[in-house]
Design a protein around this nucleic acid. Structure first.
Lengths: 116, 116
DNA sequence: AAGATAGGCAACCATATGGTTGCATGTCAA
DNA sequence: TTGACATGCAACCATATGGTTGCCTATCTT
């Protein structure tokens, strides 16, 4: 149990940086990218991106697969789901989801009225 | 959209600290605690706890309600759900949940065999 | 009215974090 | 086999972060 919490600490630390979240976004929409692929569009050095990816991998949010000299990265959503389950009980899911959808709809209709 | 990402940045930063996650755990099991209540059992100063709670409040993970001179804290699970929805698509929820349950069961059976 | 209680604000400090640069290693392709 | 390419490792630096202490404000209670 304590080991689980320590493992999750790495997950939360890994998610704390916006660049790393962008990397996860990229992998979410297109799984199996290499380091070189992921460097493009981030405006920081390759070494910085590599460090980020190592943190994500160490946290278990990304799993890798070597293919020759290129390292492919895959998103692992399980820790994300575990975060969810920590503070949202099964019975409250529908209520919370309804509120999320409501908030999104309000955001949308607000956007429409922004520039008439 | 960019405002949404910036708002979520506060959420991830707030979740990055273990003490703050413990505070959320406390509120999850017993909503509506005061600062004084929450200080007990954390082994850091009241001011440190207050700072943590301010961060959680600013991130929208905790909502407060003044009752005289005592500040009551309530857990708001909506940002947690939004994290979930960012990287777990609706159609993949059953698969991911099955993997989470499997991992938990394996952890359990492993525990049993730990001390024979 | 006065002490006790619940909380806020600000300055300060040590460490953690994210970035850089420079160099090394291993694999593919001509 | 040799040069190009994909990635790893280490040292270093500026800033962010979490903690402390000291003092202030507001609200109960007697």
């Amino acid at each position: 149990m304590v080991a689980y919490l320590e493992a999750m600490d790495k997950v939360f630390k890994a998610l704390a940086d916006p660049q790393r979240r962008l990397l996860l976004d990229r992998l979410f929409e297109c799984d199996g990218l290499s380091l070189k692929d992921l460097v493009e569009g981030l405006d920081i050095s390759r070494q910085a991106v590599a460090k980020h990816l190592h943190l994500l991998e160490d946290a278990g949010l990304v799993v890798i697969h070597w293919q020759g000299r290129v390292k492919l990265h895959y998103l692992n959503p399980i820790p994300i789901r575990q975060i969810h389950d920590r503070w949202i009980s099964k019975f409250s899911v529908p209520r919370v989801q309804a509120l999320v959808d409501l908030a999104r709809d309000l955001e949308q209709s607000g956007k429409k009225g922004d520039e008439p």
